[in-house]
Amino acid sequence: MKRVCITGAGGYIGSWVVKLLLSKGYMVNGTVRDPCDETKNGHLKKLENAEERLHLFKADLLDFESLCAAFAGCSGVLHVASPVPLHVASNIPGSRVPNPQVEILDPAILGTQNVLNACLQAKVEKVVVVSSGSAVLVNPKWPPDMELDESCWTDIEYANSIQDWYGVSKTTAEMEALNFGKQHSLTVVTICPSLIIGPMLQSTINATSLLLLSYIKGEGRSVIDTMENLKRPYTDVRDLSEAILLLYENPESNGRYVCSAYSLGTKEVVAKMQSLFPGYNYPTTFIDRRDIPPLNSKKLLKLGWNYRPLEETIVDTIKNYEETGLMENGKPFPSMIRF
């Protein structure tokens, strides 16, 4: 039985990857900051087969030795962990990160370097690095009428100039990961997902779920009845998990892969949500903004990836929000967060 390690196992994406691997019969190692923190990681221990086949390790991306311990005996590593600042999901103009080097750049870049070196030491066979659509999207030289595919890379110099630290971090880390694989004969595959939505397994809400919740709840918006009508690329978190496992299991996977199911304006998404769940406090006025270009996932689809209908994602997500109390007044928006 193969053993695979997932970094950032307790996070939004990592939790679904752990659940999927356990359902497929894998032995699973998961890295978390604190295995004893039941608030952040207790949900992992309740997953089916977790008691028999899940081992959580206390690890930090900047602590090489802790990664080596977690990767020991693993045939594969799925590197999911990376901080996602609120402004990445929200597209709030002028959002600032107080200390980008510590908060974003080091965990993504140095963290990925540590992961790859630890993989070499543990004799791991294959690594899947979860990058981001942010490593594809920020390129002013790309023709505006062309879909963005694997050949498009975020312009690091330009991203630096506009202080898009997340784009800088993910692009740099992904480039270095692919080069590392070539230099050390280690199989490294990267995946660049779009905005990730869908139901949550973890109890602490993540940035993209906050954004989707703001479509439904007026208290999450700067102006109660108004939102920007920005076309964004979306993917269900469960479909992304399937894509990550597909890239790990398929011997033909190589290089980088864009992962995006839909490209929809806020107004379209809200209309779909309203038709399925009428009665909530949806925005009524939409201000058009320059759209984010569509991401092209043909390479991943050709490998055998599939994605579920948008309606299924919306139904499962809103039911999840209802069941976890997120639809109640005052939850989960702190007063300083508005979209």
Rank of each mutant, 00 (worst) to 15 (best):
L78I: 15
G167W: 04
S335T: 14
S95K: 10
L245S: 02
S132Q: 00
E312W: 13
A81L: 07
N206D: 10
I92C: 08
R3D: 11
L137F: 06
L246Y: 11
G181M: 04
Y158G: 01
V188A: 08
V168E: 10
P35I: 07
I337W: 09
S214H: 04
S82H: 08
I244Y: 02
V269K: 05
G330L: 09
A81C: 12
Q163E: 14
T313N: 04
L300V: 12
C5W: 00
Y12I: 07
S169P: 02
E311W: 01
K24G: 08
G76M: 11
E323L: 14
C152M: 06
F180P: 01
A108L: 00
L86F: 15
T317H: 05
V168W: 09
V128T: 08
D291I: 02
Y12D: 13
L110T: 08
A89P: 08
M227L: 15
S185F: 12
R238W: 00
V130I: 15
A59N: 05
E150P: 09
L22C: 05
T208M: 14
C259G: 08
D239K: 03
A70F: 05
R238I: 07
D225M: 02
N29Y: 11
K319Y: 10
E312S: 01
C259Q: 09
K302L: 07
L195Q: 13
P83R: 00
L54F: 03
W305E: 13
E312G: 06
Q274P: 04
R290E: 14
I244F: 13
N306Q: 12
L62A: 14
S214L: 04
K123L: 04
V97H: 13
Q202F: 10
P283Q: 09
H184A: 08
L247M: 04
A9I: 13
N229E: 13
M27W: 03
G167E: 09
Q183K: 15
T112P: 01
Q163M: 10
